[in-house]
Design a protein around this nucleic acid. Structure first.
Ligand SMILES: NC(=O)c1ccc[n+]([C@@H]2O[C@H](COP(=O)([O-])OP(=O)(O)OC[C@H]3O[C@@H](n4cnc5c(N)ncnc54)[C@H](O)[C@@H]3O)[C@@H](O)[C@H]2O)c1
Ligand SMILES: NC(=O)c1ccc[n+]([C@@H]2O[C@H](COP(=O)([O-])OP(=O)(O)OC[C@H]3O[C@@H](n4cnc5c(N)ncnc54)[C@H](O)[C@@H]3O)[C@@H](O)[C@H]2O)c1
Lengths: 225, 225
DNA sequence: ATGTCTTTGTGAACGTGTGCACAAAGATTG
DNA sequence: CAATCTTTGTGCACACGTTCACAAAGACAT
């Protein structure tokens, strides 16, 4: 029976072994003391807990550069996600196959979501259309949204939104890069602790909120008189 | 003079106002008591601290579906990132313009990095090529890497890596989705606290590490006898 | 069966990040 | 110029996540 110890897994994942064991303990006691974890059984238990044993139908809305790349991405299928439909507002796109799936028009969004029992939607439209698309998805029954558009989406309680902001990823790298570069000259200026990602994100969000000439027209109105 | 209060910014960003003020205080005392923060000055100070006032040349390696989408993405330029070059190993791609920039062959990687003073590299190649591309980037002087390939990259000290794993984003959504669905039947089973993203990530990473039939051939060898 | 050895599962200590609450600062008004 | 009002900047307490450390559990050898 192939097994792994928490120590081996922790080393491979780059985390503390005690943390890993404690995390696993929330799922139950699936390890054997003195031996480790049965790999196959562990994978199954984690998969089950994460919901990967289920088949999750997903719709992607906005089949432009990014949407098409996502549609072509094989990493989704291998984790239990099935692209149930591709949706775009551009009539020229309708019917055109992307990654073997014909693009459907945005008019049919509600029907598609309902007919396929879709609960997860991916938004890859321009920022200006994102909130509207989001509202329609939620109205049709979607309760989880992965948002690639650079906008804060407003959703009712019970709906989860995750935003993927690639610019922020680069900003975080640039921030550390700047740190490295200025390290020599900073012998007398170490008052500021290294900010966490959370701090950086808060600052970046604040900057976005305060910036009237934001990337798109969806900037929240926070400018006082 | 247009100003914002920490309260307004916190509401817009969805964070606590005290946290936001404390974060800002690390940058210095840029606010005026009784008034708030001068928007323009604040934006400049944050931009400077995050390194956005600098021009960061970036190379994208692997101009497939995702790489092309990234090259076309306007959000980078607006934050001070300039796509200095697109690099691909496919000879058929060489010279072909993507987003107005001609793709260059991977052979020239080192020269491109050095000539442009590139310190940030984006990897959008298949997982199997990622480590090799990473090594070459680092060897040429790159010290920050944004990795889209589903692989753990090994880098020397002093090099930062950020991994963007879109599957994990969907997994986190699916996890919460499952939670919502099972909420009714879980009246007697609330022993497990809601895991944080960190816990989920650790578990997912562990699963990947333990799974011999991983997405790509780059799975670390953690399988004991 | 008994002892030894390995590794889990977890209580407790620790550190870090978050939020409260308020004094100090400065603007504004009379 | 004093009184008042608003909002910052931050000390402090709390909560949360992480790590340490070890007893308990089980496998395996003798
Ligand atoms: N390309 C990237 O690498 C990248 C990276 C990060 C974020 N983004 C963001 O992702 C989004 C998409 O990027 P892109 O490069 O694919 O843009 P794109 O312009 O290539 O594609 C957008 C697509 O959305 C469609 N669309 C517009 N309105 C719609 C609506 N109401 N309903 C359905 N479809 C609609 C358009 O027809 C188009 O096909 C943008 O908001 C962009 O800022 C892109
Ligand atoms: N498409 C997505 O939405 C998506 C999402 C998440 C992650 N990813 C990951 O991003 C990577 C790229 O995805 P994709 O869909 O664009 O794949 P793709 O196959 O379309 O593109 C890969 C490109 O990399 C080039 N390449 C291969 N080896 C190279 C090397 N050694 N040096 C330089 N270039 C090389 C290929 O010629 C090709 O153009 C993959 O690892 C994928 O798993 C993709």
């Amino acid at each position: 029976m192939p097994t792994v110890s928490s120590e081996e897994l922790a080393a491979a994942a780059g985390v503390n072994s005690a943390k890993l064991r404690k995390d696993f303990s929330y799922l139950g006691s699936y390890g054997t003391r003195g031996v480790g974890y049965d790999v196959e059984y562990l994978v199954y238990q984690i998969s089950r807990e994460l919901g990967l044993t289920q088949d999750w139908p997903v719709v992607i809305v906005g089949i432009g550069n990014l949407g098409a790349a996502l549609a072509n991405y094989g990493g989704f299928a291998s984790r239990g996600f099935r692209v149930a439909a591709l949706i775009d507002a551009d009539p020229a796109m309708t019917g055109r196959p992307v990654a073997g799936i014909p693009v459907q028009h945005a008019d049919a969004l509600e029907d598609i979501v309902r007919d396929n029992g879709v609960s997860i939607g991916v938004i890859a439209t321009p920022a200006g259309a994102a909130q509207q698309v989001c509202d329609r998805l939620v109205g049709a029954g979607v309760t989880s949204i992965l948002n690639f558009a650079p906008t804060m989406l407003t959703v009712p309680d019970g709906v989860d939104v995750r935003k993927v902001d690639l610019s922020i990823e680069l900003q975080i790298l640039a921030f550390h890069e700047q740190r490295k570069a200025g390290e020599d000259a900073a012998a007398d200026d170490d008052a500021m602790p290294v900010p966490t990602a959370a701090k950086g994100a808060a600052a970046a969000a604040a900057m976005d909120a305060a910036d009237p000439k934001g990337t798109d027209g969806e900037a929240p109105a926070v400018m006082p008189a």
